[in-house]
Design a protein around this nucleic acid. Structure first.
Lengths: 210, 210
DNA sequence: GACTGTGAAGCCATTCACAGCT
DNA sequence: AGCTGTGAATGGCTTCACAGTC
């Protein structure tokens, strides 16, 4: 396969395009141009074409793209043509919210277990899933071939949770704890810090005042 | 102040440095070098120095940086030397989780109101805050000089919510709805799509297989 | 005529390497 | 000697502009 280096920014945009295309498909739109996609998601037409060009030729010159086909192609590129089992560690507010969040299921992510260290929480239900003790992680990960673990524990426990997930056998981690975690190089990690996003806004607001 | 164009990536890193420095300060560390910061957060030493150089000279050649001072400087750069009142629109799972999330408060964000359109939810309490009807947004935003609004409504309502927030008078929006929103150019917007982060992971996992 | 696909150009961010302090 | 601060070089992403196709 063409394992050229693809900008991460392109992947983020592809994910955005896919949602927009799905929306259009639902509305019954059949064909769309790169310019219209660009307009709809706020990027340049050339950018849209370039992002797609990394993966093939999906359009027809003089015409544009078939909405449903292109959506299908992008979903396949993102690996979303099949389900992805995931586990969530940390049954606090954020972990619970993610467990109940419909958006994940819609995109093909299936929660196979939610875990917490707090004995008070274990056994309680979150979004229909029983909160399990950390000891169960390895078994659940193996039984359901889980490749992705989500960390929503408090920052001080982020590292040990990451280590635990790696030992259990996941290949990728989505870390919501505001702390850098160290994992072996073959493990994919993405950090989502909710406060960071707010801080970019405050920075921009402060900058503008001058 | 040198208002040259500063890469957004630098701002994200500054936010990360600030957390790391706070951690070090708590542990009693007095001085640190760019190399040690780099090591701690997973970037290059030159990157750390360059990021800081956009805003001034905070270190001492031959020595390094004073941990507490540098933390203070970065917090000021990010505009976090004072409190930021915010409002949250959408009292679903995510909105509730954010309202109860301690991380925001710790960084100086104070929730001045949470709003929802669902009559069933209005009046109920979320993290000690009563859920209010959308009609109250304008009053709350004006009374508390709120500049930042957070959108956690379902995707189809994202645009109207954004419009409402802008009319109420906010200058910045953090949008968690997986939909592109259109606002006047003077309004700062950041989109956080939780599924996008997972999809970058799945893309990378799929890529690796070949 | 319209729109895609793409090499080339332009632009921006990161890394390098060293001068400048302490 | 050690580490910062920074101009210069590098590398990578985005935009441009046009050839290719329907």
């Amino acid at each position: 396969m063409k394992t050229f280096k693809i900008p991460e920014a392109s992947i983020i945009r592809l994910s955005v395009y896919s949602r927009y295309l799905y929306q259009l498909d639902q509305k019954g739109v059949i064909t769309i141009s790169s310019g219209e996609i660009a307009e709809g998601v706020g990027v340049s037409p050339a950018q849209v074409r370039k992002d797609l060009a990394y993966f093939g030729e999906f359009g027809t010159r003089g015409v544009g793209y078939n909405v449903r086909d292109l959506h299908g192609h992008i979903m396949k590129i993102l690996g979303l043509n099949h389900k992805w089992p995931i586990v969530i560690v940390g049954a606090g507010n954020l972990g619970s919210a993610l467990t109940m969040y419909k958006g994940f299921l819609q995109r093909g992510f299936e929660i196979k277990g939610i875990f917490d260290s707090d004995p008070e929480k274990i056994g309680t239900e979150v979004g229909g899933y029983p909160v399990q003790p950390l000891e169960n992680i390895t078994k659940v990960v193996r039984d359901h071939m889980v490749e992705i673990g989500v960390i929503t524990v408090p920052a001080p426990y982020a590292q040990e949770t990451a280590t635990m997930l790696v030992e259990a056998g996941v290949n990728a981690i989505l870390n919501f704890a505001p702390r850098v975690i160290n994992v072996p190089p073959h493990i994919e990690v993405r950090n989502v810090d909710l406060a960071v996003s707010l801080e970019i806004l405050t920075f921009n607001l402060v900058m503008k005042r001058d």
